[in-house]
Amino acid sequence: MSVLGPILALVILIVIGAALNGNFLSAGNINNVLSRSAFIGIIAVGMTFVITAGGLDLSVGSMAAFIAGMMILVMNAALPTLGVGIPIILLGMLVALIAGIAAGMLNGFLITTLGIEAFIVTLGTMGIYRSLVTWLANGGTLSLDFDLRTFYRPVYFDGILGVSWPIIVFAVVVILGEILMSRARFGRHCAATGSNEHVAHYSSVNVGRTRMLTYIMLGLLVGVATIMYVPRLGSASASTGVLWELEAIAAVIIGGTVLKGGFGRVWGTVIGVLILSLIDNILNLTDLVSPYLNGAIQGVIIVLAVILQREAKAKG
């Protein structure tokens, strides 16, 4: 499998960015780009496992919006009893993680136990979560209580030694994910399941449980991403997390994971996420093209990154 394609694309983007704007490589800009990559990135790490095991999850964007809505509602409701403080933040985080696991289990149950196509199941749950958050917000926006938000804010904006928390959490998730994928039995089982589930079954791999675990893990990571997301703007609405699922899937594929399953690499996904974020960032920082064409530029670069990968693969 080619290593070069996505890295090359990333390097080219960084060179272009640095050449076009002096502030591109400033600590502030790098921090911004990495922090905002963290949501999609954390989700995309989970998505890497799901896709590697031969699955797909279209519901993650809606799921994130729904979990954010649940967090805000629960924290606002608990405010009179718990007051502003660490316990209420922990409560919110717990809600996010539990909701994420539950949502992942639901997807996993419908796909592995009832044997319904992953595409259909998650297309369905995507609509369900999106509607639920719209309903919870009464069509508007759910906002975290102002004092709570002020207290919670550092979880997105502060960090250690100038590195913000989302970046730190993202890095930890990536390192654990990479180890799990390339060095652990679970990763091997995911790849075997996605490569050929019959072979996996005949090799004593519990195919159903492996798939189930990938969806639960993805749900959990959506919860983690939401924990980082809520303090940024302190709100959730029907437009939260729109198209995150496609961005996450695109990042996974750009990174070299095979869409039909059987092979995945977490570090590649990170490259994919960074490529997607940098395109937006560079387009904002420069006046190269009409903003109407931003989507087209993004599309061209996604396809190019995958072609580079293919070319290098054919040679190697």
Binding site: N21, G28, N32, S235, T240, N284
Partner: peptide
């Protein structure tokens, strides 16, 4: 895009630029 997240990103980049 009349969207909070998108405008957050755009504004961050404006501030860098």
């Amino acid at each position: 895009n009349w969207n909070r997240d998108d405008s957050f990103n755009v504004m961050q980049d404006f501030l860098s630029k």
